[in-house]
Design a protein around this nucleic acid. Structure first.
Lengths: 155, 155
DNA sequence: GACGTATCACTGTTCGGACAGTAGATCGCC
DNA sequence: GGCGATCTACTGTCCGAACAGTGATACGTC
C-alpha cells in the first residue's frame, strides 16, 4: 500500500470541508480506539456508557437511559437486550407503570466497573496525551463550540 | 423531556473523560447533520465520500478507494454494491489484473455532484459558523492534534 | 366513565463499521 | 515451470445508529 505514502490526510480532504473531514477521521479513530480498549472487558462501544450510567444513577427506565445518552429509544432497546443476554443487566417490569421496564446493573456486572473506568481513563489519556492543562481547555472549548454549532435550535 | 434541562452535557460526562465524551457527542451530531443534509441527494453518509473521490480521481480499484478513505475493504465492497444498485457507479473487471474490479462514477451520477458539494459546503459552514479565520485554524489544529494522538504508531 | 392523546418499549429495515475467513488471481523466487 | 506468499474482492457475523411503524398502557379532558 505505497509504504512511502505519508500518513497525511488525503489531498481530497483539502477542499471538501477540512473541518468536517477532520471530524470524520477523528471520530472513527476515537471509536476504534475505544473499541480496542473495551475488548478486554467484553463490552462493545457505547454499551459501556449504558453500564456507567447504571452504576452511577442506579436502576432506571429505558426512556431515562435513552435521554441520558441522547440516544434513539430503539438503539437503547437493543443495547439493553444484548447486555441482558451477556448478564450485565436485568430488566424488571415497573409495578407502578405497566409500560415501563426498569433496567438495573446486575451484581455480576460490578466487577466490570473498574475495568471500564480504567479503559476510559486510558482512552482519555491517549486522546489528550502531550497536551498541557491550557491546551486541554482549548480542546474542550473547541469541541463544545462545534457541538453547539451543530445542535439543532429545537433541542 | 424536562424542557428546563439545560443543553449542557450530562453530569455523568464530567468525570468519565470530558474530551472523549465531547468527541462522541460531536461525532454523532456531525454525522446526523450530514445525513439530514444528504437526504435530498439520495445518498447515505460516506457514500458521498466515495462518489467525491470517484468524481475527482476518476475510475479506480476498490483497494485504492479503501486506502483513500482509510476504510475497511469489506465496508467499501458493500458501499460500492449499494451505489451500483442505485445506478451511481459501475464496476468493470480489470483487463490486466483478474483480481481487481474497476469502479467508475456513471454519467448519471454527475448530476449529483453539485448537490453533494453544496451539502458539504453547508455542512462545513454550519460546523464552523461564527468562527473567524484564526479560530478555524485553531479548530483544525486541535482536531489534527487529537487525530495524531490516536493514530496508532504502526500506521 | 369514555375517548382521544401521549408515552413507552418493541420490531422491521437500512446503513456504516469492524473482524474473521475465503476463493481466485498474481507475483516472486527457487 | 512450479510452488508458496501476497493481493483483491467477497461473504458472514456482530454491533451501533437512524427512521418508521406498532401495540399496550397511562393520562387528561370532556
Amino acid at each position: 500500500m505505497d509504504p512511502g505514502e505519508p500518513s497525511v490526510p488525503a489531498p481530497a480532504a483539502a477542499h471538501g470541508g477540512p473541518v468536517s473531514h477532520a471530524i470524520f477521521r477523528l471520530a472513527r479513530l476515537h471509536k476504534l480506539t475505544a473499541a480496542q480498549l473495551l475488548r478486554r472487558t467484553g463490552l462493545h462501544p457505547n454499551q459501556e456508557l449504558v453500564m456507567m450510567r447504571l452504576w452511577e444513577a442506579g436502576p432506571q427506565r429505558q426512556a431515562d437511559l435513552a435521554a441520558a445518552m441522547d440516544a434513539d429509544s430503539a438503539t437503547i432497546t437493543r443495547t439493553i437486550q444484548r447486555l441482558e443476554r451477556a448478564g450485565f443487566v436485568r430488566r424488571t417490569p415497573s409495578p407502578t407503570d405497566g409500560r415501563v421496564t426498569m433496567v438495573a446493573a446486575t451484581p455480576a456486572s460490578r466487577g466490570l466497573r473498574d475495568d471500564v473506568e480504567a479503559v476510559w481513563t486510558e482512552l482519555e489519556e491517549r486522546t489528550v496525551a502531550g497536551l498541557d492543562e491550557q491546551e486541554r481547555a482549548t480542546v474542550l472549548r473547541v469541541l463544545d463550540r462545534l457541538e453547539a454549532n451543530l445542535t439543532p435550535p429545537g433541542a
